[in-house]
């Protein structure tokens, strides 16, 4: 984000439209949560003439949804007013962690029955995670499996409302 670009209002407008468009692109496996909520957008660069370059961070290295997400981002950005050329690149060397999740991601995850990461990786032992049930809010919950339907989620049950649910694992 070069300071010189920041002073150019027409580029600033385009940059904002790109961020707004990215906020509409959902993770196919977490349909309420956008790539912006997930902290997957590393940087957005806009150039005079309308060239837009987006650098994205993959979440889990082996996540099979990445190609779909990349396609959706490309497709959505192609429709942004003023964007003439769109470049989308996954930066596989940059380190995405769950600390990049935006605060609003927690509520959106909860609406899908998924609890947000309870802490940072290694902040506490897994058996000391304090996970609130996304359905009833009780923290009387129990880990069932560190692995779940996707690489990023673990399986829990709530001892209060007896509901099974998922938690996004800290990485």
């Amino acid at each position: 984000m070069e300071a010189t670009e920041r002073r150019r209002p027409e580029l600033e407008g385009l940059r904002q439209r790109v961020w707004d468009a990215l906020a509409e692109v959902a993770d196919p496996e977490l349909p309420a949560v956008s790539v912006v909520d997930l902290g997957m957008v590393g940087s957005v660069d806009v150039e005079p003439g309308g060239t837009v370059s987006v650098r994205m961070l993959p979440t889990f290295v082996g996540c099979p949804a990445l190609a779909i997400i990349e396609g959706r981002v490309r497709e959505r950005l192609a429709a942004v007013d003023g964007a003439t050329t769109v470049e989308v690149r996954f930066d596989r060397e940059d380190v995405w962690t769950t600390e990049r999740l935006r605060p609003e991601a927690a509520d959106k995850l909860r609406s899908l029955g998924i609890a947000a990461p309870p802490c940072r990786l290694r902040e506490r032992p897994v058996d000391a995670w304090r996970v609130a049930c996304p359905y009833c809010g009780s923290t009387d919950t129990a880990l069932q499996n560190l692995f779940g339907p996707t690489a990023c989620r673990a399986l829990y049950t709530c001892n209060q409302c007896r509901q099974p649910f998922e938690v996004m694992k800290p990485v």
Binding site: F60, V61, F147, P149, A151
Partner: peptide, 15 residues
């Protein structure tokens, strides 16, 4: 579930 998830991770790391 665990082994399929771990397998997916390992293949991803290989990639």
């Amino acid at each position: 579930v665990a082994f399929s998830s771990i397998a997916q991770d390992e293949v991803g790391h290989a990639a």
